[in-house]
Simulated scan of single mutants.
Amino acid sequence: MTEPVPLLSRREARRRDRRKAILEVASRSFLENGYAATTMSGIAATLGGSKGTLWRYFPSKEALFAACLDDATTAYREGLAEILDPRGDLAQTLRRLGLKLLEKVTAPDSVALYRLVISEAGRFPEMGAIFYEHVPRNTRLLITRFLERAMESGLLRRGDPDTAARTYMMLMLSGCHQLLLLGQITRATPHQIEADVTFGLDCFLRAYAPDAPG
């Protein structure tokens, strides 16, 4: 019998809602104003509270930035985990994964975030490190574990699964995503995304095709 989910107390509900409001304001500020121009004082002023209250939720701007990334990517990573079913057809699974990946990274907010990191990571390496750990690295780890199982099952040529995951991701991101980041196109069409995934997957499966017997 399924255990009933306990209801949040009023205090817990208020704290959850307050945290959500902080993340919404902070995320908007990071994307619109940049990392350097976003301050804890400015966020507190926008929220209409004291900086001390904000610090009770997040002890630093770095912690707040990390929380914004987690909030924006948790549901996405959960969706990827559902796609990466080792019992499914390998090529179809990798195709669905590629479509999901490109749809996410070519969304306007994702493009704005990538541009923010690229423009400011040189001056704020801690921001670049936080982004790397919470976004591309977390995605790559999910793919790495999936590809490792595929190699163990003989569906892919044996090799370093982390290198294979990086290869897969770079093939997927080498087309319309790169053009978006460089301002060569204003949006990625479903046709472009489909074409990038088809091309990238073909290259990947040829590179990691199982070795012939003997």
Rank of each mutant, 00 (worst) to 15 (best):
R18I: 01
A209L: 13
A13H: 11
L171A: 06
R123E: 12
R16S: 12
R11P: 00
S50M: 04
E78S: 11
L141R: 12
P125F: 06
M1E: 14
L182W: 01
L69G: 05
E82W: 03
I43W: 06
A81F: 01
L205F: 11
L69P: 08
H191I: 01
L102Q: 03
E12C: 00
S119L: 08
E62W: 00
T93N: 06
R157L: 13
C68R: 04
G48H: 10
I118W: 08
T189D: 02
E12Y: 00
A63V: 01
R11V: 12
L179I: 00
A195Q: 14
A164V: 02
I143R: 07
P213I: 08
G159K: 08
T163V: 14
F58D: 01
D70S: 13
L7D: 10
Q178P: 00
E126R: 14
Q92D: 14
P136L: 05
R16E: 15
V135N: 05
I83W: 10
P161E: 04
G52D: 03
F124P: 01
E126F: 06
A13S: 13
L179K: 15
R187P: 00
T53Y: 13
R19A: 12
D70E: 15
A36R: 14
L182F: 04
R16T: 12
K100M: 07
M40K: 08
L179C: 04
T73E: 15
P6E: 07
M1T: 14
I193C: 02
T198Q: 12
G214A: 12
A75W: 02
E120N: 10
V25C: 09
D202Y: 09
P108T: 05
G154Y: 03
R145L: 13
D17N: 06
D89R: 06
E103C: 07
A107G: 07
L141V: 09
G200C: 08
D211H: 05
D17V: 03
Y168H: 11
M127A: 10
S119C: 05
A209F: 11
S9V: 07
L97H: 13
E194Q: 15
C203F: 11
C176K: 00
P190R: 01
L113H: 07
R18G: 04
L179R: 15
M169F: 07
T39Q: 08
L205R: 09
A44P: 14
K100I: 00
T39G: 08
L156G: 03
M1I: 13
R28P: 00
L147V: 08
I43P: 06
G42V: 11
A72K: 10
R145P: 00
R145Q: 14
R28N: 09
Y208K: 02
D89G: 04
R206G: 00
T93W: 02
R10M: 02
E78H: 12
R157G: 07
L147Q: 05
R166T: 06
F58M: 06
A188E: 01
L173R: 07
R87I: 02
L64V: 09
L7F: 04
P190Q: 03
D71R: 13
A121K: 15
A91E: 15
G200F: 03
V25G: 05
D85W: 07
A112L: 10
P136V: 03
A209R: 15
A188N: 03
L173Y: 08
P6W: 04
G128E: 00
T189M: 04
